[in-house]
């Protein structure tokens, strides 16, 4: 683990520890707890935001599994459709949904930190960038939904 000790002492050129002296103060270097992200709400929200990526990946794998079933033919497609209708699958997908929606919201709210958009000489305010992102999310969701359901 971390090689830093809770109290850093000074060593001389030969690596021998120098005891506390008047003009060679010993410094205290606090160590960070493994669970630092539990102690503050903002840090906890941060770590949850980072963990949404796990659920994004899980769904990417589910998409691969679906593509595979589609490739293998109608029988395996039927097996997969039945598996998707089980309570386990529904609960899993609800959990995935909660995390990916959290990902989407946090992602769009942070979008202005990285993007600077200018119209002529004016810089577009952060709130406008966020609003455009949410609007696009809605439009793209409707479009994808329409393709999946209606085409």
């Amino acid at each position: 683990m971390d090689s830093r000790e809770s109290t850093t002492s000074r060593t001389d050129d030969a690596g021998v520890e120098i005891p506390y002296q008047r003009f060679r103060p010993k410094r205290y270097q606090p160590r960070m707890s493994i669970f630092w992200w539990i102690h503050k709400k903002v840090y906890l929200r941060f770590i949850i935001r980072e963990l949404t990526s796990v659920f994004v990946a899980i769904y990417a794998v589910i998409l691969i599994v679906k593509l595979n079933a589609l490739l293998r033919g109608p029988e395996s497609w039927e097996v997969m459709t039945a598996a998707l209708a089980t309570p386990f699958s529904i609960v899993l997908h609800v959990i995935i949904l909660l995390f990916v929606v959290y990902h989407s919201i946090t992602w769009f709210l942070l979008a202005p930190t990285a993007t600077v958009v200018r119209l002529g000489r004016k810089r577009i305010p952060d709130s406008a960038i966020i609003a455009v992102n949410f609007l696009m999310w809605l439009v793209l969701s409707v479009a994808v939904g329409w393709i999946i359901l209606a085409v």
């Binding site: 769904y59 999310w137 969701s141 999946i148």
Partner: peptide
């Protein structure tokens, strides 16, 4: 993924 995955999960999952 922020734009497209939620709608997939809602509909297909």
């Amino acid at each position: 993924s922020a734009f497209f995955i939620p709608i997939h999960v809602v509909l297909m999952g």
